[in-house]
Design a protein around this nucleic acid. Structure first.
Lengths: 231, 231
DNA sequence: GCGAACCTTGACCAACTGGTCAAGTTTTGT
DNA sequence: ACAAAACTTGACCAGTTGGTCAAGGTTCGC
């Protein structure tokens, strides 16, 4: 019963990696990719707005412009679709930390990192919110990822920070808390944007808010952890 | 049809304010208070773990040790119960900002505020998560509160900060961003605790983590915004 | 050209959920 | 003591939702 020739299920898991531009691809593959992309985009929007439980596959399908049965053909279950969305988000989330290397200058590296994080927050607030909801719920889907891949990356980057400290380039701080608070400060402008807007009497944040946030956070962090030759 | 003598509905809205210890109170009132408290506590736990949509009134009732119908008798609808829980949380959330006055010394006031926020985060992580979820969802239930009560408080406290700046007690910073980032940094230790634990190879955060967080945040903020006579 | 694989979709369904209700029990005021 | 008000609760229900399915269309490999 499982060995049938049908091919539903995990389809778009592949769309998560960088394997874009395959060979010309027949019409079939083209349509498949277009549909998967449409569904993933719709799912991101709906999951961000209503949360996993609040979202319905009917909403997502409608937003993607496809029948609900079609969505289930591509992704199987709501949960599988949610996982596919999360995978894309995790890749996005982790990208900025890459240019955080031994050689880099603390002031520059931190400023760049904060700038990238704020940019992520500004351009992909929905992604940020889905990630946040997942964490608040206890990370049922990504706990494994957090305690392995992410943990490893953090440890690696922590070593960079400790080197900076040893070299007297910054004051003595616990690297993990530095990372955690940078994530928190930047992401708050996506996740809790309504609150920040509301207390300013605005309906939504604008580019100026993000620019000011970036400046404020950068200045406070650089000065706060004693980066030499900053602020 | 509405003028019946029954008395279901908004019951516990009152439990939110500080009107504890009423006169001896008959058995009736006693039971009512006990039940409302049990339901609110159960609701807080369940809403925090599953979110508004993921939570069911049956779960909450079971956790409270009461039949579901009884829960609906006291609070009417799931949404009304949720609002009651939120009201309690808002009061908790806002309390720490109170001792933020003109006369206070910046270093002391900020350190105290951060300490209280971290304490809230440590002792009431569920409350923090519910509040966070509500904001991520766009604050459908509390937008009004945010743009009036909270906004007013923030403006009032912003004046205090601007006074400090004018008096040369701290560097020039935008008060709103200062508050927002303090909220973000402290709350992240409740809302995203799984993540912080995971990257450290732990199952959960312990008191030491909160202590370290408090120290780190306090040090970075005080130094970062140039509080005279600090770090 | 043709059969097999793949895709599309309206109709359908079982499970769950918030909420109701009526019948009964307990407490309260007088 | 007794009636009115308040509380309790098992049974019930209508609406919603994730997911299935069968029948029909389209594309692909050869």
């Amino acid at each position: 019963m499982e060995g049938s020739s049908l091919r539903p299920g995990q389809g778009a898991a592949r769309a998560a990696n960088g394997a874009r531009r395959r060979p010309p691809a027949g019409r079939r593959a083209e349509v498949r990719e277009a549909n998967e992309t449409a569904i993933l985009a719709a799912a991101e929007a709906v999951f961000a707005e209503y949360g996993f439980h609040g979202a319905t596959t009917a909403m997502i399908a409608e937003r993607a412009g496809l029948p609900k049965a079609n969505l289930h053909y591509y992704f199987g279950t709501k949960e599988a679709l949610y996982k596919a969305v999360l995978e894309n988000i995790l890749a996005l989330w982790l990208a900025p930390v890459r240019n955080f290397t031994d050689e880099s200058d603390p002031a520059q590296a931190l400023a760049d990192y904060i700038a990238l994080k704020i940019e992520y927050t500004r351009t992909r607030p929905q992604a940020s919110r889905i990630f946040a909801s997942e964490l608040i719920a206890g990370a049922p889907q990504i706990l494994d990822y957090l305690s392995h891949e992410l943990r490893q990356v953090v440890e690696e980057k922590s070593r960079v920070v400790r080197r900076w400290i040893a070299d007297g380039k910054i004051g003595p701080v616990e690297p993990v808390h530095l990372f955690v608070t940078i994530w928190a400060m930047t992401q708050t402008y996506a996740d809790f944007a309504v609150q920040i807007a509301a207390i300013q009497g605005k309906e939504a944040l604008d580019d100026g808010d993000f620019e000011a946030a970036k400046r404020f956070i950068t200045a406070m962090v650089l000065k706060g952890i004693g980066v030499k030759g900053a602020g």
